[in-house]
Computed example of a mutant assay.
Amino acid sequence: MPFELPDWARAALRGVTPEEIEQVLRARRRWARPSTGAPIQVTLIAGRTTSGRPLVIATREISPFTAIVISARELTGADLAVYEEWEEGTDEPFNG
């Protein structure tokens, strides 16, 4: 699915580059988790950059095969622990 990074979302990025977002969205191993409950449906995609930095990216589908990036941040704390547990249970180790 193609992902677009709107100018307003790019301007709001703090500590994450558009290149890192692209690396995670193109990564072979990424963990997509659809939101539940809110009227605006988003999908959170966790993954690692080519250097191994763990990020989570919030996306929203705007048409059947196109989504926009809403925001991105580094995974830390309990969120990182859950992601690392998911990584351990997958069959492909991260190679960078």
Rank of each mutant, 00 (worst) to 15 (best):
A11H: 11
V69Y: 03
V16D: 04
R26P: 01
E4H: 12
E61T: 06
T49Q: 02
A9D: 03
A72Q: 09
A81F: 10
A46R: 01
A67H: 08
A11Y: 03
A78R: 14
E4L: 13
T50I: 08
G52P: 01
I40L: 14
V16E: 03
E19R: 11
I40F: 12
I40H: 12
E19D: 09
V56M: 11
W31F: 02
T59S: 02
V56W: 04
R53L: 13
G89C: 08
P64H: 04
A11M: 09
R33H: 13
Q23C: 04
A58R: 02
V16R: 07
S71R: 09
T76D: 04
R26M: 08
G77H: 11
T66N: 02
R73N: 05
A12N: 14
F65T: 08
M1N: 13
P64L: 07
L75Q: 03
Q23A: 03
R60E: 08
A27L: 10
V56Q: 03
W86Q: 06
T49Y: 01
A9H: 07
G52C: 08
T43I: 09
P93A: 11
S51Q: 15
E4K: 13
P18T: 06
L75G: 06
P18S: 09
G89K: 07
V42E: 14
E84W: 05
A58N: 00
